[in-house]
Amino acid sequence: MCASYGLDPRFKDQELMEDADHELLEGIRAWAQGNADETLRPTGRILRNLNPIVVPGEAAPAVELAWWGFLVDGRPSKFPSINTRSERLQDRPGSLRGRAIVPATGWFEMQKPSKQWHEFGLDEALFGMAAVTQRGRAEDGSWYTCYSIVMQPAVDRLAGIHDRMPVVLPASFGADWLAGAPSRELIDEALTASGSIADRIAATPRADDKGSERLF
């Protein structure tokens, strides 16, 4: 599963969305600079690290700070919710009613049994991971957009490190993901489109524990 990812403000290229304007990209960059290169992790009862996602806007896609993982009855869900299997969405396309794109420059996974961490990315370019969203209320009564990253089986050359990977969307499919009808066809098209960019993902061993799993 994807339990942490990175957003480096020094990205030079972007493969987030074809129509991503300067304001959108600079908004993401400014947030990442303020985050001081900290790894992005799930939000919890104590840890309130709201993360940027790209959501549909009235005139154009916009950046919104959102809660990673779903809230149920005012608390983080007891069931795993930071990731959603693509197979589940194929069976239950109604869950696609709310969608977002999660900007990232890499995600982290541990290879077992060696316990070696790897960072996966596109040569430091900004890219987008598909996500589903829903509204949720925290214990203090505040409402948030909550998101779950959509996961698929890893491509063969990466499966030896980890058997799952995010549905990474090519820039040409970003608008379709945000605006398309919530249907089996949409998730099928997203998986097909992801294949063209998944083949370019590189895995780099890490000497530090930046990807260490620390769930709250």
Rank of each mutant, 00 (worst) to 15 (best):
R97H: 07
S77F: 01
D209E: 15
A171S: 12
R164T: 08
F11Q: 01
E26A: 10
A30E: 10
D73C: 10
A20K: 00
I101E: 00
V155T: 08
G74F: 06
L186Y: 12
A20Q: 05
R137L: 11
P52T: 14
R75C: 07
G94M: 08
R92T: 15
G34V: 03
R10H: 11
P170K: 13
G211R: 02
W31N: 04
F70R: 05
Q152D: 14
A193K: 12
G211C: 01
T192R: 09
E23V: 09
D13L: 09
D163L: 06
S81M: 04
S142G: 03
I187S: 00
H162Y: 09
E38D: 06
M129E: 00
G94H: 11
L40R: 03
G98A: 07
L158E: 01
P76D: 08
P76T: 12
A66G: 09
E213F: 12
R214D: 14
G141F: 05
T84M: 15
P93L: 01
R29P: 03
G128F: 00
T105Y: 11
G174T: 03
E124F: 04
L24T: 00
L71V: 11
S172L: 10
F127N: 01
D208Y: 10
L186S: 02
A175P: 02
E213M: 15
V102S: 00
D73S: 15
W177I: 05
R164I: 04
A159C: 05
A3K: 12
E18D: 14
E26M: 14
P56A: 07
F127L: 08
E109M: 02
A32G: 13
A62M: 10
A181I: 04
